[in-house]
Computed example of a mutant assay.
Amino acid sequence: LPIHVHVAEGPEDQEHTFSLYDQRILERFHRAGLMIQNSLYAHCIHTTASERALIKDTKGYIVVNCQSNINNGVGFPEWKKFNDEGTNLLMGNDGYGFNLCHDARFMILCPHYVHRDPAASYSGDLTRSLFGSNYDLATSAFGVNLGTIREGSSADFIILNYRSPTEITAENFMDHFFFGICDNISVSDAFVAGERILAEGRPARIDEDVIYKEARRLFKAFEKRF
């Protein structure tokens, strides 16, 4: 089975491993035979190029979580370098909120600050992750074709409320996403395997009000125990 592990989010992770095993984290994983195809390596901020080459060679994925990294004060992943090295790169958020639009913004804007260069990254740099690696992994993990609208793919898609005063094309979609959709993302409908599960902003198969009422009741009991 593939592994899913956080790697070198902070420098102390490498220091601790090296002091005990005289090897860096991913070198140790590789020696133990853990690095197999479709494994997920979160963060990888304090890794070397040779370590990341092990991920590439074993067909794994690096998952960057930029908002979470900044919140924890551990540094910022040089994700463009990861891309240039040919490693499969995914965008995640490590549980820091639930709106990946914010993570997309952090991914694009933080390299401007780190490198003091507004041309260090732009919205198009996310295309390979959002419409490539993320869907490749999901397709492999769930055993259905995801991420494309064509015959043979699962009919999984969302419809966004987004009115644009300018034309939307394949070439400029990421700019629309970054500068328009992300500002106020609004999903009106969602389909899974062709079934409409969100209809005009409301769940189609469940009573949302009943679930929220029960959640508040359960939380009170949890709060007492906690």
Results as ranks from 00 to 15, higher is better:
D22K: 15
K81S: 14
Y212L: 13
A199G: 10
L109C: 06
L100W: 03
G97T: 02
A190W: 07
I168M: 08
R217C: 04
A190L: 08
D207E: 11
Y162L: 12
E195C: 14
L100F: 01
G147V: 02
G152I: 03
A32P: 03
F157P: 02
L1D: 12
R205N: 13
S39P: 02
I149L: 12
I62M: 02
F179N: 11
H43D: 01
H115A: 06
G194A: 04
H4P: 03
H112K: 07
M174H: 05
L146V: 06
C66W: 01
E12I: 15
F222N: 14
A193I: 06
E9L: 06
L40I: 09
N69V: 03
T58W: 00
C101F: 15
E78H: 07
S186V: 08
I197R: 08
L1N: 14
Y212H: 14
S186M: 12
A155Q: 11
I62Y: 00
N161I: 13
W79G: 04
S123Y: 09
G86V: 07
N161C: 15
K224Q: 12
E223N: 13
R216S: 12
P203H: 05
I149D: 02
G180V: 06
A138H: 00
S164E: 07
G152D: 01
A204K: 13
A155G: 07
D57P: 03
I158N: 11
N65K: 09
F106T: 09
G75I: 03
P11R: 10
R205S: 12
G60H: 04
F106K: 07
Y122D: 11
L1C: 15
H6N: 02
D117K: 04
P203V: 11
G152W: 05
A221D: 12
G97A: 03
K81Q: 11
F142V: 10
D156E: 11
R225L: 12
V187Y: 00
L198K: 06
M35G: 04
G143A: 09
A8R: 00
C101H: 12
E85S: 10
A104M: 13
A120S: 05
M174K: 07
L146P: 02
E12S: 14
Y162V: 09
F179K: 04
G194V: 03
E85M: 14
M91T: 01
L34M: 10
I181K: 01
S50M: 08
G60Q: 08
D207V: 14
N38A: 06
